[in-house]
Structures are given as C-alpha cells and as structure tokens.
Design a protein around this nucleic acid. Structure first.
Length: 247
DNA sequence: AACGAGATCAACCGCGGGATT
DNA sequence: CAATCCCGCGGTTGATCTCGT
C-alpha cells in the first residue's frame, strides 16, 4: 500500500497542547463536527497534524469523557474484557462509557497488570502464572480465561485452584467460541421487542461509536438491561467468535 | 530541602486496512 | 486491479508527578 506522510511535519507543533489550541479545536469541532481530520488543522488554524488533533479530541477534549479514577467495577470489567479480547483497547473502551482506549491501555499497563500479578495471574494469558509458564501455547483470546466475580482469588490462585483448568472457573458463562457464518440464533437478551440490533450491538458493544442503531435508541446505553453490564451479551449464551474479530 | 527512583499519562509513531480513485 | 488516501489502532516514549530516603 502506498503511503504518504500524514502531515507536513516541518510546520506542525508537537508535544503538549496549549489552552489556546484546545479552545480552537473545541470550537471548530462544535461548529463543524468531527471528521476529515486531515484537513481540520488547517481549517481550524492549528499547526498540528490531523492525527494529533483527533487524538487530542478523542482522548481529552470530548465532552462525554468521564475523567477520574476507575471504579472497582470498571477494573473487573476491563480484566474480563481483556481476557476475551486481548489488547483490543478500542473494543474494551466501547464497553466502558466515557473511557478512551488510550486511558484504558494506560490504566491496564500501570494498575491492572500489577493487580493481576499480585493475584498470581499472568496478565497476558489470564491464567495462573505457574500454569501459564507451562502452557506456552495459550493465547490471550481464550474466553475460558474469564472467571466469575465470586471466584476471584483473594490472594492469588493458590492451592488446588491454581492447578485447575481455567475453564472450570466459569461454567455458568457457557462460553463457546466458534467461527461461523452469521447466526440466526442470537441470544435472546440481545433482541428488543422483535426489533433487531445492529451488528455492533449484537456484540454487546452498545456504547461503541460504531453502533448504527443508537439513533433509533435501541442499544444506546450500557447496562440497558437495568442490572449492570451484560458482559458482551454473554448472559444469553453463545458468543460468536466473529465478535472478536477486528477489521 | 534535595535528590533519585518509580509511577503515571498525554502524546507520538508506524502500521493495517477500508474506501476511493 | 493497483495505487492512493485517510482513519483508527496498538505499542511506545518521554515529560511530569509522587513518594521514599
């Protein structure tokens, strides 16, 4: 694929954004909306490359961002999602309203990794460290690495639990990853009143920017089932492996 | 108070891949 | 069908902050 530089590097600012630059970017996007990042800097009078503008907006200036510490609930959700999706930070962020992929990625690397290591869990494989060391063929996409909240090891996976196959820790999730053509048997909770959800929502990613049915108000809020997160829609049953694919 | 080490996080970089020409 | 454009992603860097000595 042929590529051209994303911007004229010689005439762009780099490094931390100033208040003035932020204001320019915010007011431009308020007036014209997001998109066309390549031409935005020039149009907004910013000496930045489009990429930089996009990043600044997405990660810092967007009005719907939830700043502040992650809650314990968010922590556990991130861990669960990571065990399923691996380092697909954008997908994980799609399940955490107000959080950005960059923020989650940083939080993972600084906090959660350590947290898991303290529990005796390998953050890459989500399996007990001893076991992970023995089984080098494990991939992080394994859904079986998810464990139930009530089974969270208090002080790491010790004793017999540390030797148990991981999939036994979440029998209730009834996870079955498979590669298949689009299924006609979507889990019941993903359907609303006989209507159909967009593909993104069918993945349980109702908050994703890629959700095409939020306009219709079908899948616009996470936890729309009213009882917290329906983790990737797994309450309902089978997770189609297609949902784990990225573009 | 001064310093160094470690932690944090905003921002950059390079690349993959869909869309368009 | 190939070339090009552009967006978005994940990995990494480096400046700044915090904490212990």
């Amino acid at each position: 694929m042929g590529r051209s530089p994303c911007c004229e590097k010689a005439h762009t600012n780099k490094g931390a954004w100033t208040k003035e630059e932020d204001d320019r970017l915010i007011s431009y996007i308020r007036a014209h909306g997001e998109g066309c990042w390549r031409s935005l800097p020039k149009a907004a009078g910013l000496l930045r490359c489009g990429k930089s503008c996009r990043l600044r907006w997405i990660n810092y200036l967007r009005p719907d961002l939830k700043r502040g510490n992650f809650t314990e609930e968010e922590d556990e959700l991130i861990i669960k999602l990571h065990s399923l999706l691996g380092n697909k930070w954008s997908l994980i962020a799609g399940r955490l309203p107000g959080r950005t992929d960059n923020e989650i990625k940083n939080y993972w690397n600084t906090h959660i990794r350590r947290k898991l290591l303290n529990r005796g869990i390998d953050p890459a494989t989500h399996r007990p460290i001893n076991e992970a060391a023995q089984d080098v063929s494990t991939i992080s996409f394994t859904a079986s690495a998810v464990y139930k909240e009530e089974e969270k090891p208090a002080g790491g996976f010790e004793g017999k639990d540390a030797k148990s196959p991981v999939h036994e820790r979440c029998p209730d999730l009834n996870l079955e990853l498979k590669i298949s053509p689009p299924s006609q048997n979507q889990p019941e909770p993903l359907r609303t009143g006989g209507g159909s959800l967009c593909f993104v929502c069918s993945l349980g990613l109702q908050n994703s920017k890629d959700c095409s049915c939020r306009i219709a108000g079908i899948g616009s809020t996470s936890g729309s089932n009213g009882s917290g997160y329906d983790f990737l829609g797994l309450k309902g049953g089978v997770l189609d492996y297609r949902s784990l694919e990225t573009k």
